[in-house]
């Protein structure tokens, strides 16, 4: 898993990535020096849970991807089955390329998880 995250983090403007479960348990993490793993996991888990609940309340079911843009950064939360892949980036980057990398990484993680099962 670390290998996959390492590859993702090589992308332009990527500040860190992690795999986290809905309830905030870190499966694997490779965050930049200015990001605290546990803090990011707690914040992201809260976003995932509350967003899922809100969507389910109007029968939209769960989400597969959430791209969140703030004034000074972006966050992509990608569903990978039993957990979520989270990627934090700088704000200025063009996400198109990074999103392709994220989809590829998500696919690889899911494939490995199936093999390990």
């Amino acid at each position: 898993m670390q290998e996959i995250l390492q590859r993702l983090n090589r992308g332009l403007g990527v500040r860190g990535s992690m795999i986290v479960t809905v309830d905030g348990i870190i499966v694997s993490s490779l965050m930049g020096q200015d990001l605290d793993d546990n803090r990011v996991a707690a914040i992201v888990s809260n976003v995932i849970q509350r967003t899922q609940e809100a969507l389910e309340s109007i029968e939209l079911r769960k989400f597969s991807q959430y791209i969140l843009t703030a004034v000074h950064g972006k966050m992509v939360i990608q569903d990978i089955g039993n957990a979520f892949l989270v990627v934090i980036t700088d704000k200025g980057i063009n996400l198109d390329h990074t999103l392709i990398e994220i989809k590829g990484a998500a696919f690889k993680i899911q494939s490995r998880a199936k093999i390990e099962d």
Binding site: R39, V40, I43, T51, L55, L60, R61, K62, F63, S64, Q65, Y66, I67, L68, T69, A70, V71, H72, G73, M75, I88, K91
Partner: peptide, 14 residues
């Protein structure tokens, strides 16, 4: 809380 400024936009896919 992530210290990246306020929310600007979001796209949720499902």
């Amino acid at each position: 809380r992530m210290d990246v400024g306020g929310f600007m936009n979001g796209i949720i896919q499902g």
